[in-house]
């Protein structure tokens, strides 16, 4: 398993919370880009900060299961849609217990990422170029989470019924990704993305990401359970989120080398 790739978690998962403001509901005719912007904010920018415990069950194509458990802290820097910091503290499996993965996310350019290995007291910097690789051996990608900027795809509104917007996304640089297009269902009330389906270069559906359970937490629609299915190779990963809290007043310096070497209580418990 590779923690370096972790971030992905945030994907649909983690702080996949949304926000229901009066404005967004009142919006009349939104363009595809506007809908995607709102969905991005709903999914990744709930509150000014937050924490969650994530339990992942990874099932391979022969039914064998592996488990991951980690705590995530998130803090936004500046306006929604902008810079963010993440702190991931691993609890399970035991060989990675105590390791920390930290990301300074810079929309529009490469993120800064670090991994702390307690046994060596080593703060390791990680190259940020890998976007569509597995996060800790799961079916989630790094980019499912924090990586894919809204400007990297062309968006088209395919359909709008009374519950969902259906948006089609096509990569501006098709050579950089393994999909040819994907479709996202976005809840009209909350602007939460609830399902995404990815098509390969032969236009075959091969990957599905879904929110299985969404609940209101402190006024933010929040994903409690999400699933990624690999329809081509088989296998799936289910993530469960618990102990979710927003606006907990995380200090900025938690996301520095000091607290990599000395995980704060909020991250460990």
């Amino acid at each position: 398993m590779k923690i370096g790739r972790v971030c992905a978690c945030f994907v649909l998962l983690i702080l996949f919370a949304g926000f229901v403001s009066a404005e967004s509901v009142a919006a009349g005719q939104l363009s595809a880009d506007e809908i995607v912007d709102k969905a991005n904010i709903a999914a990744y920018y709930a509150g000014d900060d937050g924490r969650a415990t994530v339990k992942m069950t990874i099932t391979d194509n022969q039914g064998r299961k592996r488990y991951r458990e980690f705590n995530i802290l998130r803090k936004d820097d500046g306006p929604d849609g902008g810079e963010q910091k993440f702190y991931v503290y691993f609890k399970r499996p035991s060989d990675v217990k105590g390791m920390v993965f930290m990301v300074h996310k810079h929309p529009g350019k490469d993120d800064d990422r670090w991994l702390y290995l307690p046994a060596l007291d080593l703060v390791k910097r990680i190259a940020a170029s890998d976007k569509r690789t597995s996060f800790v051996g799961s079916d989630f990608y790094y980019e499912d989470v924090s990586g894919r900027g809204v400007d990297e795809d062309e968006h088209k509104l395919l359909k709008s019924d009374d519950k969902f917007y259906l948006i089609e996304c096509r990569p501006k640089d098709p050579g950089s990704v393994e999909f040819s297009r994907y479709q996202v269902w976005i809840d009209k009330q909350s602007f939460m993305p609830v399902k995404a389906e990815y098509y390969d270069k032969e236009n075959t559906l091969y990957r599905r990401v879904e929110a299985l359970e969404i609940k209101d937490v402190q006024g933010f629609p929040t994903v409690l359970r999400s699933r990624v299915e690999n329809l081509a190779a088989g296998g799936k990963t289910v993530s469960e989120f618990s102990r979710i809290k927003y606006d907990i007043g995380l200090k900025d310096d938690i996301f520095t080398e000091r607290y990599l070497r000395r995980p704060p209580r909020q991250a460990r418990r």
């Binding site: 910097r125 190259a127 940020a128």
Partner: peptide
């Protein structure tokens, strides 16, 4: 010194 460079990491 350490920083990201050309999509990788340099030190």
């Amino acid at each position: 010194l350490r920083r990201d460079l050309f999509g990788g990491l340099a030190n």
